[in-house]
Amino acid sequence: MNRRDSIKAIGLSAISATALLEACKSGTTEAAASSGTGNHPVADTTGRQDFEIARDKTLVGERFFDAKEMATIAMLADIIIPRDEKSGSATDAGVPAFIEFIVKDEPQHQLPMRGGLRWLDMECLDRWGKDFVGCTPEQRIEVLNDIAYPFKAGPGMQPGVTFFNKMRELTAIGFFTSKMGIEDLGYKGNSPGKWEGVPPEVLKRYGL
């Protein structure tokens, strides 16, 4: 595959992922009801339609992932987005709670997430006789290295690649749309002001 073809391939993958997400998001099937409690903060209801307020309340009151699945999600999320000198980790930003909510909000994620978590545990069990959480940090990195690089992964690892793509995307969304993540990215807007164009020193830097 030459460079041109590679770019086409990534373009395709990126767009497919986005298009798929877009297509799936239009679905509104109800999440399967299960017992448990949610821990999501109640959203500001300004401008919300009654059915939306009721729907959010229902979703927050349901639980999809069990405790073991949540523990695996939390561990994976912090491996994907760890703490560094600039900001905290995925769990510091509440990513597992976001993932628990979004799979109920967009139920098309439920099966791939549940099945993917199980696939990961089985892969670890086959290799080391323990599930993912029970593995050593080195073992966890070893198995993730086999599924985290879509263009390098072997054919037998494809189910893991599919799962990790989704897990990584949901983690990134959860982190970078949180208060911590938005501050990390350095987004400066959403505050009333006067827009007078790109600062002159920036224009100069880019020769514009």
Partner: peptide, 18 residues
């Protein structure tokens, strides 16, 4: 209007379920 709400003020972070 939901003007000036932050993404994290939506449980779906601005997602489009509804």
């Amino acid at each position: 209007s939901q003007q000036l709400k932050w993404s994290y003020q939506s449980p779906r972070r601005g997602g489009n379920a509804t």
